[in-house]
Design a protein around this nucleic acid. Sequence first.
RNA 1: GCCGCGGUAGCUCAGUGGUAGAGCGCGUCAUUGGUAAUGACGAGGUCGAGAGUUCAAUUCUCUCUCGUGGCACCA
Length: 656
Amino acid sequence: MPQNNIVITMPDNSTRNYRSGITGMEIASDISKSLAKASIAIKLDGKLSDLSLPIEQNVTIEIIKRDHDDALELIRHDTAHVMAEAVQNLFPGTQVTIGPAIENGFYYDFARDEPFSTEDLPKIEKEMRKIIERGSKFEREVWDRNEAIAYFKNKGEIYKAELIEDLPENENITIYRQGNWLDLCRGPHLPTTRHIGNGFKLLKVAGAYWRGNSNNAMLTRIYGTAWRNEKELKAYLHQLEEAEKRDHRKLGTEMDLYHFQTEAQGSVFWHPKGFTIYNQLEGYIRRRLDNAGYKEIKTPQLIDNKLWEASGHWGKYRENMFVVPDEIPSTDENAPVVSDKAFEKLMALKPMNCPAHVQVFNQGTKSYRDLPLRLAEFGCCHRNEPHGALHGLMRVRQMTQDDAHIFCREDQITGESVAFCDLVKTVYSDLGFDDVKVVLALRPDIRAGNDEIWDKAENGLRQALIEAGLEFEEAENEGAFYGPKIEYHIRDAIGRSWQCGTLQLDFVLPKRLNASYIGKDGAKHRPVMLHRAILGSLERFIGVMIESYAGKLPLWLTPTQCVVATITGKADNYAREVHELLLKSGIRSELDIRNEKINYKVREHLVKKIPVLFVVGAREAEEKTVAIRRLGSKAQDVVNLNQAIQNLKDEAIPPF
RNA sequence: GCCGCGGUAGCUCAGUGGUAGAGCGCGUCAUUGGUAAUGACGAGGUCGAGAGUUCAAUUCUCUCUCGUGGCACCA
């Protein structure tokens, strides 16, 4: 019987004929010995596969070597498998669950009565090195579904059995073996464990819910990082250390910007320097909004729960609210602070501004001519966040949103959305953020309104993103219950992504709170509401900025823009004069006439990240000049005083 | 909220079953010095809170609290 011939197309479009059933490794060997040695996987029609997998039909192949981008994911995934074996070798009775490759590394979730501690990590690493050294082949097997379930159940691996039970009926159950150990896995894998190399390290132990659901058991997750070699690993670990140095929580203390304390957990005590940044940022946004046709308002913090009931927040969202009894508290030490009856009359700190903004809209009668009406507020909101969620400035319990609600007609949605997207783009660019991820969050399972409305809403936002020329990705199920949203995410120093700006379409709240306007036809109509924020919250955005700039903010945002430092006491009077002139020019200046050496002063101010130093001694006083030293440069420029002030003044002008 | 780890001077951190230490910062004095730390002296802490074990607890155990790495939730 003649052998089946198949045609293999190479990346350069040349073709080769092979017998059916040949493996990637055999093709590599056929091309050259060195290629066979260097190859770790193969792409069949663009899909990553094992080198050992028999090829049975015509395909285009690409042989993957260690330096290929896709190699990292394989290395990471395989390291996870090896870790799982190591853990089961060392801690019998531990169940394995899932262990994927992730950005920069991998993790594996284990179920074990006794949780792992950080001290176990070196032991596990040592065992992993043994397994890698062993060089077992990764061998792929296809198992019968029921046999697989029985096998894992019999081994006491109930999580694995559950995973297999939930796989679609038509999917092959593939098992990968490495020596005597095996795991359910889709693959693909490297040829052997030795191909993993030594560029890996276990980093941390964490808890994680089985299948990401907080009703399920808590598993122990071990995170690791894995790279092609030790050099890459070291570079990554170094990068992590550098990132830690720019953590806004660390810099916030060092730069004396703000603090937190237990009596007000999750709420910021802004210090003078930090609040300068806050005010500058708020002022900038205010100017931008004024110019974009927004009207600024201010609404109450404390609002009767009747409004929250009407808005719908008193339902599920209540668990995020701070509730306050509306009763005069007793001062009698022996009596309860408030009576039982107090709980019949509750108020709540607003967790969001929308219902209050609808109240402003609802005053008087609105005409279609009034729309769009853009109501803006630097709205102070309180949210009773779960304790584990709090994180420096990034996640707080009291925040100020740069919030606004646009009340408009349906035909104005796209126009307003496009205008907002443009506004966000220029604001982020003014603030120095170019790497922003835009997400269109689509309808969740639990939602208000019918599909027709959702179709319209989602298409409206999608259209706006396209018209604004923004690249974006779509996220199923991530929308709010009342409408889809556009989310702007910015990364922090260590790569965590935070949602900042947002645009949310809402057909529900205007109805619930009975907002209406008189149309051209003389009849009442329901306005559409666009919730939108550019920074998201001032707190979070400042946190992101501190990290992004590593504390060296643009001059207009810097709390202390200039320090006038003297070399000798003889220059004190001149220094005072220079300092006064700077203040009069609107420069945030500080005077340093302490009895310290100039070396000491220069060092101290540079460490504090003061961007500009005006150094003055007897010579400068005599010549009416200043010796300028800038952060990040050793140069000393002696400049005429008036010129120096003018230059600084020009440079410190905020954008817009 | 859940799992792990932590809380010692203003900050960063050592340390111990017999009520504590360093560096920086702070104060005083001397020093008037040209661009990354002048020197000397000094003042600071119920060792996160409460309970238990012990002759004795900052140290061991438990509970709470806050922080932290994740998870879940979210701007």
